[in-house]
Simulated scan of single mutants.
Amino acid sequence: MSPSGNQDSAPEGVRLQKVLAAAGVASRRVCEQLIVEGRIRVNGAVVTELGTRIDPESDLVDVDGVAVQLDGTKRYIILNKPRGIVSTMKDEQGRPDLRRYTREWPERLFNVGRLDADTSGLLVLTNDGDLAHVLSHPSFGVTKVYIAKVEGRVSAQTIARLTAGVTLEDGPIAADKARLLSASGEGAGSLVELTLHSGRNRIVRRMMAEVGHPVVELVRRQFGPLHLGTLPVGKARELTKLERGALLTLSRRDAGDDRSAGDELSAGPRSQ
């Protein structure tokens, strides 16, 4: 937020309660109450003055610690990607790509990270480059949850080995969590749930092959705070307000943008 400058000039920014109401947080009157109760932060600093003005294009606002989306030009989509679809908006080899799932939205969307063509499940599509960087870059450690149908009967010892770590051709890797969902006979195979934050190529398939249980089918059920839920295969939808808040909260925290009060007091909220 920039300083207000000359006192005789027109006030800069937009009143906080108006911005919050426009973002769908609540009615303006309820938003005013949230401000008075100290439940709103602007750039990490609690704001309690009703005259506070902000710049919706640059300031970061959260309610009860949950980020609020102020930029209405940003779009966030969740897709249950089918098998056989490559994770790109335009495949140079002419294979089925993601364009068919984005036609109803006018924005130019792109996928956050990738799923192999033979892997189905949760894929995020957006036009928010900053958020996409946080979600897809392995250094931020965003977790993903996969359900793998594998060959053979998986033992408790194998599950322990997955969390202890295995060594692959590109280095050691350990699952954050591993859980056996079901283990039938050799013909029926087993279901294993793996939680990972690694972004390495085909990592679940390579880990399971290393422990002697090649993957037959693989689905990503969760990506950070987002869950696939009951979204049918091949369907896409916009994130709900709660999902957007959880996603933006995660991205701001991991990107270091959840500013403390001391970081930006040289240009604090404007009051009038």
Score class of each variant (00 low, 15 high):
His137Thr: 01
Gly185Glu: 03
Leu196Ser: 11
Gly199Cys: 09
Pro96Lys: 10
Ala22Glu: 04
Ser251Glu: 07
Gly268Pro: 11
Ser27Phe: 00
Ile35Val: 14
Thr240Met: 08
Asp64Glu: 12
Arg259Cys: 00
Glu32Thr: 05
Trp105Met: 04
Phe223Met: 11
Arg75Asn: 07
Ala117Met: 09
Arg99Ser: 15
Pro11Ile: 07
Lys81Gln: 08
Leu265Arg: 13
Leu135Val: 11
Gly5Cys: 01
Ile203Ala: 04
Gln157Pro: 04
Gly185Leu: 03
Gly5Ala: 14
Leu191Lys: 14
Thr230Tyr: 02
Asp258Ala: 12
Lys235Phe: 01
Gly121Pro: 02
Asn127Tyr: 01
Ile40Cys: 07
Thr52Ala: 12
Leu265Gln: 10
Gly229Phe: 00
Arg28Phe: 00
Glu151Gly: 12
Val66Trp: 07
Gly51Glu: 13
Asp170Cys: 02
Val145Thr: 15
Pro172His: 06
Ser87Tyr: 03
Ile40Met: 08
Ser184Tyr: 09
Gly229Trp: 00
Gly165Ile: 04
Ala10Asn: 13
Ala23Tyr: 00
Ala26Thr: 09
Gly268Met: 05
Glu57Val: 05
Asp128Phe: 01
Val204Trp: 09
Leu122Asn: 09
Asp258Ser: 12
Glu169Ile: 00
Ile85Trp: 03
Gln17Phe: 14
Arg205Thr: 07
Arg28Asp: 07
Val124Leu: 15
Ala156Met: 06
His197Glu: 06
Leu228Ile: 01
Ser198Phe: 01
Asn43Met: 05
Gly262Lys: 10
Gly38Tyr: 00
Val86Glu: 11
Ile78Val: 15
Leu60Ile: 05
Gln272Pro: 13
Ser271His: 15
Leu70Tyr: 02
Arg205Lys: 15
Pro232Lys: 04
Glu151Asp: 09
Val68Leu: 03
Ala21Trp: 00
Val166Thr: 10
Pro232Ile: 02
Leu239Gln: 12
Asp128Gln: 08
Gly113Lys: 01
Tyr76Thr: 08
Gly262Asp: 11
Leu34Tyr: 14
Asp130Ile: 06
Thr52Pro: 03
Leu16Ser: 10
Val25Gly: 11
Ile85Leu: 08
